[in-house]
Design a binder for these strands. Structure first.
Lengths: 138, 138
DNA sequence: CAATTCTGTAGCCACCGCAATCACACTTGA
DNA sequence: TCAAGTGTGATTGCGGTGGCTACAGAATTG
């Protein structure tokens, strides 16, 4: 299916920020150490989270990333849609001229069901906030 | 994320079977033509659908695949769980000995939320049956 | 002002997963 | 007995993505 590890990594990074909130920004190196990945990967991901207004980046010495708003106002659904742009279900584009009617119309027919399923998933993700996650970690 | 195209291909193949039901089995070549893929890919996929009791394979000349039960008793959720064995959200296994508590406990903390989200998605998929799909195609 | 420590991003490489394909043993109806 | 299927192992090729280097720009510190 669809989800790459980006979603989980984003949650991980934001959880680190949530636990450090108030103590100044956290640099990509520290986050990368915790996630066991490369700082560049983190910066790329945080760039997306910044355009989604979830984090704020401050450049220069002693710079890094901080949460843009309270952890209790950031749900997993926010993070999901910030980071995961593709649909959950990959559909090959159907060519309407196909001789087989199934091939010609399937994606169109399936669209609404897939949209509904993805929506149900996102709705469920709304019930968990970053604060919940950060608090569950002692 | 993770969903491959297998789910959509499975729906496609089963839709073809649904429209041919009663007229004898359909061979992998015909299905592959409609899906625009290789017969071997279809046979491998059908093999999984057979262990899930969704289709019946008949070997030998004039063999092929047929639905194991009525199209109105096969929901998209059935197909999904037959074909998609991995979880929607890929989690790296966390090592509990990590120095950072986030890294050590994140996957455990996230588990329930992810399970709930996936469950919500599958529940939504239950509302569409193969009969619905086949009927929507004229 | 200069040095240091960050972000931001381009560019490249390596790896992984999966579809595609060939090959072939086995099954069964004509 | 032959033709037409399934079932499955093995291999290949490709696309996507993470990991990495490199470097320009920004801000803090001395």
């Amino acid at each position: 299916m669809l989800s790459s590890s980006r979603f989980v990594v984003a949650i991980h990074a934001l959880s680190v920020l949530a636990r450090q909130s108030g103590k100044g920004p956290v640099c990509s190196n520290v986050i990368a150490d915790s996630v066991h990945t490369n700082p560049v990967v983190i910066r790329r991901l945080m760039s997306e989270l910044e355009t989604a207004k979830l984090v704020v980046a401050t450049a220069g010495r002693a710079g890094g990333f901080s949460l843009a708003r309270g952890a209790d106002t950031i749900s997993l659904a926010c993070i999901y849609s910030a980071v995961e742009n593709d649909a959950v279900f990959r559909m090959r584009k159907t060519d309407p001229d196909a001789t087989c009617p199934v091939a010609a119309q399937l994606s169109e027919v399936l669209g609404p069901s897939f949209k509904a399923a993805e929506h149900a998933m996102v709705q469920s993700l709304r019930q968990t906030t970053l604060k919940d996650v950060a608090h569950a970690i002692h």
